[in-house]
């Protein structure tokens, strides 16, 4: 299922050898994107960190494809300084109950990035040590970066009320 170009990349090859882990692999504008089975995200990240020198997590963000299903995508931007590659991992999550395993134990940077995705997209990260809103006020209703959240005209929330 891998194209020749992708087969030459060792970490892509190793990940697609994991049963069911890689659902789709694409190269677009020189950027490698792997669609990962959400159940295996922690295992995939750990493998990248331990065996393919992915020292750092650049960031985690979300995409909302409302009204399509599966609605959400969680995007992991992974970077290896030593092996000089960048990699995007994506997990598709259903709109009903977007939930995925936290990768906090692989990269502790995930702490804040997962909180941000939780805050702005409403994706729940299982086993995150402190999953609460980070940018919006604690009592905010809704998740602003969802496509069905209005850009203008939303009523303000007041903490004390």
């Amino acid at each position: 299922m891998l194209t020749e170009e992708l087969q030459r990349i060792p970490h892509v090859q190793a990940l697609s050898a994991m049963p069911g882990a890689v659902q789709e692999a694409t190269v677009h504008l020189g950027e490698v994107t792997l669609m990962i089975d959400p159940e295996q995200i922690t295992a995939v990240c750990r493998k990248l960190r331990d065996e393919f020198a992915a020292e750092r997590l650049s960031g985690i963000t979300g995409l909302d494809w409302y009204p399509m299903e599966p609605r959400f995508e969680v995007v992991y931007l992974i970077h290896s300084i030593r092996n000089r590659y960048r990699l995007k991992l994506k997990c598709r999550l259903p709109g009903e109950s977007p939930e995925i395993e936290s990768i906090y134990e692989v990269w502790r940077a995930a702490d804040w990035y997962e909180r941000e995705v939780f805050d702005l997209f409403g994706v729940t990260f299982r086993n995150h040590p402190n999953l609460k809103r980070i940018l919006m006020p604690e009592d905010w209703q809704g998740h602003p970066l969802r496509k069905d959240f209005p850009v203008h005209g939303h009523k303000y929330s007041y903490r004390a009320e």
């Binding site: 650049s58 960031g59 963000t61 995409l63 909302d64 995007v75 931007l77 502790r108 940077a109 702490d111 804040w112 970066l145």
Partner: peptide, 27 residues
């Protein structure tokens, strides 16, 4: 400082994610 830009072919971005250094460093 990273910009992750997603287009769906329209005249405005579908999503712009800013991977900002201050956020990363403050962790």
């Amino acid at each position: 400082l990273g910009y992750y830009v997603v287009s769906d072919g329209a005249t405005n971005p579908y999503r712009v994610f800013m991977r900002t250094p201050s956020f990363g460093n403050l962790i």
